[in-house]
Amino acid sequence: MLKIWSIKKDNAQAEKKKPKVSAAQIRVQKDLTELELPSTMEMSFPDESDLLNFNLSIEPDEGFYKGGVFRFTFNINNNYPHEPPKVRGIQKIYHPNIDLDGNVCLNILREDWKPVLNLNSVIVGLQYLFLEPNAEDPLHKDAAEDLRTNRKSFEYNVKQSMRGRDVKGNYYDNVMAKN
């Protein structure tokens, strides 16, 4: 028979039953356990046996959004890292790059995702959105327009929205940190 059918066994290891563990699972284990979460972020798992679904909260310590706690859900599928994690905000907030349904406009979550990126890159990207909201890539048009034309008014509106008050006819969720 053809020689390619027998693989050389260097040692006994080939005889041991190899586990059925998906490459996505191992990659998530690697990404998660090497996360360097800043003190402004916290992670939680609705079901700790499922590492593919978790929540992340961000409590910015500077910028427009200081004082609020912003929550996101992460959903990773078995095609990770070929596909990016799905990230969604769970509160209604006033932010140029996040719409009222929690969709996040962050390039590496969609068109610029690459398998060499990891969860840390996504988390850094999210953090950055709160420090430097970007009026050029609007997902929430009013908020972007506001930021572009008048930073003072934008700042005021952000503060109002974070307390659960209405901004231009829309009520937002109260996201203030409870001390």
Partner: peptide
């Protein structure tokens, strides 16, 4: 800083994130 899981996805010890 090794993190350890079993092949059937049970956690033994994980170095991060803090909650885990």
């Amino acid at each position: 800083k090794p993190s350890l899981m079993t092949a059937d996805n049970k956690k033994i010890y994980l170095q991060a994130p803090p909650i885990l």
